[in-house]
């Protein structure tokens, strides 16, 4: 049977291109190029694979900034059918993010929500859990495989040292890991079709952010000695000496 799947897509500043302000140490992200969070790509892939297997539709939901719009096009190219960009993201606050997302999701028909199990910019890993609580649906975390049957979902979930089989009734929320799948390279026809699609944006509700507020975000100072050893044997000896001194 066909399923309506919502995939939560996070857009983050490209971490490779983030630079701290050299005097204040404050992270400057204003002009940093944006990219799809890697785990969101896994989430999209998982959702599209389920659609291809069982039928249905995939809806992509981004909570970000207006500049996130091209990332939704990338999701379309990968096989997401429809989507929206909720604007007004004000920084890392999973409680607020969950509130905004759930506000939107409550008004939608859905069977399954899929997201990454965390994101590389904040690493809180809280969002799937909070959404599960706010919507009152089951959370099946760290899924390696996902199978659907009527109103049931079965998931092989990976924990640090074991794999467990979980099952729940739909609707549910599933979080995926990097091991879940290999995100596809979109075929050119789909890239071009996605390029022609209109992107719908909507201001996030509620507007005000509750709870904790980020006061500052500074990079730790690192003092590099910038010593270069051309010969491996000298370099290895120097590294060993440095580690020994540190242990002492």
């Amino acid at each position: 049977m066909p399923y309506n799947i919502i995939v939560l897509i996070k857009v983050i500043p490209d971490l490779e291109q983030i630079k701290p302000n050299p005097t204040t140490g404050e992270i400057v992200t204003e002009r940093t190029p944006l990219r799809l969070e890697t785990l969101s790509e896994n989430a999209i892939e998982a959702a599209v694979q389920l659609k291809e297997k069982y039928g249905g539709k995939v809806f992509g939901l981004i909570f970000g900034k207006p500049e996130s719009a091209p990332m939704l096009k990338k999701a379309f190219a990968m096989g997401v059918d429809d989507g929206i960009v909720l604007t007004g993201y004000k920084g890392n606050n999973p409680v607020y993010t969950a509130e905004v997302l759930c506000g939107k999701i409550k008004g939608m028909q859905y069977d399954l929500i899929i997201s990454g199990n965390q994101s590389a910019d904040t690493y809180t890993g809280l969002l799937p859990g909070i959404i599960s609580g706010k919507l009152g649906i089951n959370l099946l975390g760290n899924a390696l495989t996902i199978a659907l049957e009527d109103r049931k979902i079965r998931v092989k979930s990976t924990l640090e040292k074991k794999i467990q089989n979980l099952s729940a009734t739909l609707p549910a929320i599933v979080s995926v890991t990097q091991e879940t799948n290999q995100p596809r390279l979109p075929p050119v026809m789909q890239i071009m079709a996605a390029g022609r699609k209109q992107i719908v944006t909507e201001a996030a509700q509620p507007q005000t952010m509750p709870g904790t507020v980020q006061i500052s975000n500074r990079a730790p100072r690192s003092e590099r000695k910038r010593q270069l050893y051309e010969k491996p044997e000298e370099g290895i000896a120097a590294v060993a000496r440095a580690i020994k001194e540190e242990i002492r």
């Binding site: 290999q182 596809r184 390279l185 979109p186 075929p187 050119v188 026809m189």
Partner: peptide, 16 residues
């Protein structure tokens, strides 16, 4: 393979 099916070795997709 690449343009119609999005198929390439994993390392190549990362390169893209």
């Amino acid at each position: 393979l690449v343009l119609n099916q999005g198929k390439a070795p994993k390392e190549t997709i990362e390169t893209y």
